[in-house]
Design a protein around this nucleic acid. Sequence first.
DNA 1: GGTTCAATTGCAAACGTTTGCGTAATTTTT
DNA 2: AAAAATTACGCAAACGTTTGCAATTGAACC
Lengths: 342, 342
Amino acid sequence: MGNTVSIKDIARKFKCAPSTISRALNDHPMINIDTRKTIQEYANKVGYQKNTISLSLLNKCSKTLGVIIPSISHYHETAIIEGLEAILQPAGYLLNICVTNESHALEKEYLDRLVANRVDAICISLSQETFDNSLNEHIDKAISRSLPIIFMDRFYHESDVDRVITDDFKGAFMATEHLIKMGCQRIAHLHGPKGITVSQQRFRGYKACLKKYGRDVEDELVKQVMFSSESAVEATKFLLDQEAKPDGIFAVNDEVGFGAMKVIQERNYKIPEDIALVGFDDIPLAAFAPIALSSVSRQSKKIGEQSAHLFLSKMNGIHQHQQFTLEPELIIRESSQRNHYS
Amino acid sequence: MGNTVSIKDIARKFKCAPSTISRALNDHPMINIDTRKTIQEYANKVGYQKNTISLSLLNKCSKTLGVIIPSISHYHETAIIEGLEAILQPAGYLLNICVTNESHALEKEYLDRLVANRVDAICISLSQETFDNSLNEHIDKAISRSLPIIFMDRFYHESDVDRVITDDFKGAFMATEHLIKMGCQRIAHLHGPKGITVSQQRFRGYKACLKKYGRDVEDELVKQVMFSSESAVEATKFLLDQEAKPDGIFAVNDEVGFGAMKVIQERNYKIPEDIALVGFDDIPLAAFAPIALSSVSRQSKKIGEQSAHLFLSKMNGIHQHQQFTLEPELIIRESSQRNHYS
DNA sequence: GGTTCAATTGCAAACGTTTGCGTAATTTTT
DNA sequence: AAAAATTACGCAAACGTTTGCAATTGAACC
């Protein structure tokens, strides 16, 4: 940047070797205390700032974590980032954040770039394209060069990888069970995009719960949507247009829940009396929907924190694969809290 | 990473100089075409990946942009990041994202770390602490080493810096004027945190508009809140508890708008008939509030895009300071759309 | 005064890559 | 056949820092 001053510059000034300057700046006891002070003061004055790049080259360690996520526009992802930062900032790490927009090509591109930049590890949530088509070569290649890869949410191996996920199955089960206990007879599910793990897990949880309570999974009560309110509006209209409409809806996430709530209210059904509603993710706005939205918290921030801890443990030489499954938490609010229990 | 293969390794394999390998991999015409191919194939086979770190050291250019933001939990910030990525990914850049939680100490710490990492530039939205107390030494120091600093939203100099901001004053003016045209007689304002530029600008816009239409700014109609729904709930209750309550509310952002909407509905006032409501930021959920929330879009994604362009222009040697002010856009939805105009 | 020892400091290699310049080998030109 | 030009490659320095080892200095000891 033009006026950056290096150790060599300072060495020239003091007519001594760069090694002396380096040691002085690092408070090495080998260097005379007065020399040390003088050099430190001068370095401070001229605004010397250590060049971490040369260190990375030398130590083969960049103090940087690569983060690859499919999107950054939802609470879940930003909370993960907050969790990562909360742990890794004090540890001296920086985050290289890459958003793939669910594109496999971009994910590959970013992965290569992060490898080229020699990040110390990569936390990744696979893109939908990658996941749908099991396009794993780029991941396998990265793993084969013994770069630590930590999977968040979406992963492609059942074992043999490091991962931190939430038990979406259980969360969905809890949500569905709650609706049943609130007296819902016909519980619909707004199902997320097909290829995504979390959609599948939540659907599985929904089905398992219905089964446990001796109910059928009725096809016309399961409608697929994208992770957006727009998409939910249409699907909910479809559900409400049926002759035997649902009296409970489990939405794959809160954005979808908001979309559903809007349609339900437009049609003048009462929430939760006519239709009880539960979402997923527990976004901050959920509590402030005009009818506060019940939701399953997937501990998004904790996913980030736990991933960070996993990463740090790997930096400390623990090479066994670790897998964490976090417990979801059902947050009951107005949208599903009925007074009469069944 | 253990099994990373370098140019030197390949050179040893081919019993030739590293320079030959380097040139071969970069398709330098100086190298025999067959040699080139052989080397490239081998490099490919063993999974050679260029070490960008050494390049950064050599070229004094890291192909990385530092991003310092106070928070990452709102739509505005994630949209900025999306905008940055949209432009900088194709240009081959990576993003180092640092979240300060509005803390000056953390901002300083991150700034130092980014400088040490020799990022090519820094896009920063100042923390509240920094801004409130005009703690600018760290910024000045960075600028003095001719590191390009691009301010987003919050900046501390009136001139002499690069910046991309939205015209919040104008946005607030438009929102207020809209409420007036919808026939509101008593327009309240939920004012953001005091020290923040955007709060101040929006408050100024609100006041300027009232003045233009010959109305007084009534202290009891201006209530300060944090940028959260929780905070808005309390403030709105205060407003509605007054004997002469407002019939229009301009909220400093949409989260606050949601909080206000909740209280208004709890008290059984009709939106927009009894009280019209306008927010700010145009978050995706605004349109899907049960009563769709009118809002002022501050072109968050465009801020990111424009900042990226500014950055690229600086990388291309344009050293004059550039300042962009984006035009806000008023999005009128149910929460403020009255049928009778005045 | 020579020897030993401790206290300081310097040398040089290393990390991985690029690049200007030199050089050898081969081909073309006269 | 000698000179010139072309082709293909190697050498070495550079980026900024650390670190093991060697070297220098001065003091203390016998």
